[in-house]
Each structure stands twice: as C-alpha cells, then as structure tokens.
Amino acid sequence: MVYLDEDSAMKRPKISIEPDPVIEAYKKGIDRTLVRQNLRLTVEQRIEELMKLQQFAEEVRRAGREAERQR
C-alpha cells in the first residue's frame, strides 16, 4: 500500500507561509483541475505518471530533432 505517513505528518513542526504577492499572481495561472486530478492518485502513481511524461517528452524531442534534420 502506498501512503503518506499521517503520524509523522502530525508530529512535524508547523511552518507559517506568509502570502507573497508575486507568488499569488502566479497562482492565477495554475490549473486547479489538474492538481485535483493528481491529488486523487497515490504517490506511487504520481511518480509513474512523471516517468511516462518524461518518456513522452524524450520522444517528442527526438521527433523534433529528426524533423529538423530532414528540412
């Protein structure tokens, strides 16, 4: 089973994060629907998705390089 250890999370010292106007401006551009979708996954599934995305990005880069060579 994959989980975040809630006990260790409870014991962690609290950190206060003050709002920063620049970061607040950047937040407007964040797609919360994607974040919510990701939060429904387990940690292991999130890292597996990252590896798939990395593989996809590599493939697109390779295709781009190949297209450049053929021009």
């Binding site: 089973m1 975040l4 250890d5 999370a9 962690r12 940690v43």
Partner: peptide, 19 residues
C-alpha cells in the same frame, strides 16, 4: 523533523514535507 515517511516501490523513504 520536517519530513514525511513514504512507502513506495516496495521500500520506505523520507520525503520533505510540503510546507
């Protein structure tokens, strides 16, 4: 002290907490 325990890929490891 600011980290959480993750159980993934059949092992356990520490990950820095979100805050």
């Amino acid at each position: 002290p600011h980290s959480i325990r993750l159980h993934l890929f059949g092992v356990e490891c520490w990950c820095l907490g979100l805050e």
